[in-house]
């Protein structure tokens, strides 16, 4: 187990190196120039050139990449071209809203989707099953921003129950923090619920055909116990896998959700940085996302051993 962990952690290094080279190259090849945006619409071409030189953007690609890679190796993600703030500071300012949104979404989605999937499998082919699966198709199909606007309209503007936008740090109280996150988490969670519910249903359908389930029923166990204690536990590995894969879905969805609900998270930071060609910020955020995803995958692999004692590394 320990050897597996060390091997996996070491494998992160080449993955991150490839990601870093890819991102840096992509940004260098992409059109656009932060100097032109900094200088403003009234600036002369000469002004833009001076700013480009002051930012070091006129130097050769390899020189810039070498400097950047050296800094990364020393734990320095660089400084934003626009704000003059360290990229780590900017990421630090934005981590809490995004992590909060993802956590609340994750908890909400799992709590809703898994029982729905189990229910659909138990009642396979019946009305409940068709309703759950129909809902899942709807969850996949309706764009996130449409759901967001509708929820904000109903629950913020019409009913006045929740704020329409913004984020309150958890230090200012769990209530306000949660109040700001409910609508975004509902919005972002719909796709996730659809995904998890479908996978749960499919896996449970398979498990419910197994002999030990029949045995459990024959013993006279209650239906809930059969479904949630015996069957679900054995269906957990694919479900946990899809929950993990869905983290990437959440990261992508967070960009739109954070914009619709004006949440100052990493998604908006990424979009703003891309539109402004703020290269150090884009590179830093992409590295962070990649690293997070690698870690999530590692955590899921480890989780398998807890869920299924037959799995050993």
């Amino acid at each position: 187990m320990f050897g597996f962990l060390v091997r996996r952690v070491l494998a992160v290094i080449p993955v991150m190196a490839v990601v870093g080279l890819f991102v840096f190259s992509l940004l260098s090849l992409a059109p656009g120039d932060p100097a032109a945006l900094i200088a403003g619409d009234q600036a002369s071409p000469a002004d833009i050139e001076r700013i480009r030189a002051s930012l070091g953007l006129d130097r050769p690609f390899l020189v810039r990449f070498g400097e950047w890679a050296w800094r990364i190796l020393h734990g320095d993600l660089g400084t934003s071209i626009f704000t003059n703030l360290p990229v780590t500071t900017m990421i630090g300012q934005r981590v809490q809203p995004t992590v909060s949104l993802m956590l609340v979404t994750l908890v909400f989605a799992v709590l809703v989707a898994v029982p729905l999937g189990v229910l659909a499998a138990w009642k396979a082919g019946r009305l409940v099953d068709r309703l759950v699966m129909g809902g899942a198709v709807l969850g996949f199909s309706v764009p996130v921003f449409v759901v967001g606007y509708l929820l904000a309209y109903v629950f913020a503007l019409e009913l006045g129950w929740l704020p329409a936008q913004g984020y309150t740090p958890i230090e200012q109280g769990v209530g306000p923090w949660l109040a700001n996150l409910i609508l975004p988490a509902l919005t972002l969670g719909l796709v996730y619920i659809a995904l998890i519910a479908r996978v749960t249903r499919a896996t449970m359908l398979d498990v419910l055909q197994q002999d030990y389930v029949r045995t459990a029923r024959a013993k006279g166990l209650a239906q809930g116990s059969v479904l949630f204690v015996h069957a679900l536990k054995n269906a957990a590995v694919p479900i946990v896998t899809v929950i993990g894969i869905g983290i990437a879905l959440l990261i992508g969805g967070a960009v739109v959700t954070e914009t619709v609900f004006a949440i100052p998270g990493l998604g908006r930071l990424t979009v703003d940085a891309i539109l402004r060609r703020d290269y150090p910020v884009i590179q830093g955020v992409v590295l962070l996302f990649s690293f997070t995803y690698v870690l999530v995958n590692l955590a899921i692999d480890l989780l398998y051993t807890l869920i299924d004692p037959r799995i050993r590394y």
Partner: peptide
Amino acid sequence: WIIMPDPATASAALQNGE
């Protein structure tokens, strides 16, 4: 100054008194 890139969000926030 509260930055809102999405006009619909800014509209909702103004109507809601936020």
